[in-house]
Design a protein around this nucleic acid. Sequence first.
DNA 1: AAATAAGGTCACCAGGTCAC
DNA 2: GTGACCTGGTGACCTTATTT
Lengths: 330, 330
Amino acid sequence: MMFSTELALQECVICKKTENLGFNYGVLTCGACKMFFHRVIFTKKVESYCKYNQNCTSKCRHCRFQRCIQNGMLYTPIENLLNANNQDMLSALIFNLSCLDSNRRDKLFSYHLIGDPTIYELAKAGSLKLEERPADYRMDVMEWGYISGIISVDYMYKLPFIKSLEVDDRAVIFRYCYFYLSLLSDSLRAFNSKKAFICFPDGTEVVKLNSPGVTKYFENKIRCRLAGRVNELNITNEEISLLSVILICNPALPNLSSSAKILLASYQKIYTTALLQYCLLTYQKTGPSRFADLLSLFQVVIKTRQDISHHFVICQLNGPPACLKKLFWS
Amino acid sequence: MMFSTELALQECVICKKTENLGFNYGVLTCGACKMFFHRVIFTKKVESYCKYNQNCTSKCRHCRFQRCIQNGMLYTPIENLLNANNQDMLSALIFNLSCLDSNRRDKLFSYHLIGDPTIYELAKAGSLKLEERPADYRMDVMEWGYISGIISVDYMYKLPFIKSLEVDDRAVIFRYCYFYLSLLSDSLRAFNSKKAFICFPDGTEVVKLNSPGVTKYFENKIRCRLAGRVNELNITNEEISLLSVILICNPALPNLSSSAKILLASYQKIYTTALLQYCLLTYQKTGPSRFADLLSLFQVVIKTRQDISHHFVICQLNGPPACLKKLFWS
DNA sequence: AAATAAGGTCACCAGGTCAC
DNA sequence: GTGACCTGGTGACCTTATTT
């Protein structure tokens, strides 16, 4: 929009070429990179690693596709996903989302964002410039919480419709979603590593255990409620991917502008339809109930967040005050 | 570019056939010659001389391959050269480049270009029409300098990506590189003939010795600095081949268009990776430092060119004015 | 009507195969 | 060894749908 008059001065964010530009899949790219992205998500033929090993040229398909994901290219199916003919659209969408997730997973291990930004500052920035964590970076509960929150924000920025919102609307969404998204991703990690409780990648607990003033039972509820439910459900990566996007597309959030509400509602429709269709295809007759079970996970996530906040407040009252990043209270 | 619309009217530059044409390895050829070239550079099975001696038929593999090289067919590896599986790509590339070098060596002995073209005219020409030197052709420093410069330009024209550039960009590259390329090739010749100084093939010095106004020490520095370093390093033909191409792929040259910069940067990456991989394979543990040593040769080459220019200016001031070909000042 | 971003088509080139 | 033929990825160019 703001670009359209200056298109000639811009370049493809994937390959830096300046000819044949346009907004394709939400990102300013050349026609060649548009076709490349389309082909990859519809045929899924892309190497899962970089053959070039750090010394990559523009010809490497893996890295070219990583740049597409990193820059937020996202396929949005427009036709009715419930139509059986459109199954390849559904799988293209799911593949695309699962790439976002693996991008997110990679970053959680080794990236961070310097500083202590407020939510509004994050929303105003337009995108995040994450950096690699130094090798000796000391991680604790607070740092893990901060970094997973930041990476959830980075994740939301990968959705073109989030970028197209006004700053105020984006701030509302970020504030509401960052914690839930982190929890969803924590729960998938717990399931994949066959753990009955959620924790950070290095094993750090999500709350400080044995804190004064809280019962063991309460701490265990925080650690296990969500992981237990996810394990019961035998959740898939694809389901968590779709649930994450659906969570973000919540037009019912307070203080959203009416245009944002309309936009989010339309995307919510697309992604809930996609999840339903995924359930119908994967679970056949039990698809509808599966769909309901998955959506009910939101309640568990919300409850877990409440408990973690609660736990933190109790710790603050009973122990030495901790320094809290602005992300958590701005 | 200009060919694509008239492909039907064209012919294979190797064998003159008109069917099954395409731009293969940067040159308009038929499919058969494409396969022939590919086979030769990947298996290196080609006679080093022409069995038919001047009376060659189209069946001679040696002469067919010479036509491929002469017309600028060049293999460009796109996969990862650092991958051990792709070692045959590296050796194909190196073999291809060494053929360019030997083509260049042959021409230096017996070819020339009539006239006194400017750099821009050379860049605009699209290719050079070299001719055999008459048997009684008198060679002196100036003539040798001119001819090696011209042959360096001819060498650059053998690289398809140079041909694909705009005239202005090509002129920038020619102006910057022709002298350095000649010096690199002079230094290899010095090493191969076990000389401690650089000189032209017939023994002519690269600068007029005992010129008034310059010290013996300065003249000796010009003659020996580069040759000395190359002898110290025990340089190989392959290394000079790769260094020559890397020198040409310099996206940092002033006044290049942005598209030329992008193009050159991508080729620079390919060829520096190839050189690094060559060093790692050939020198094992000392490969990385060898790589650094080789790249540092550029500094010696640059210094030598400066000194030669300097020397020439001093001679001009102190002696009778020499007639200078436009190549050197256009 | 004009502009935009989807998707479709097809000629193109690198490389592989195989009968000759 | 040769070259016709095939394959897979590519990108210029075209059509279509939608918005303004």
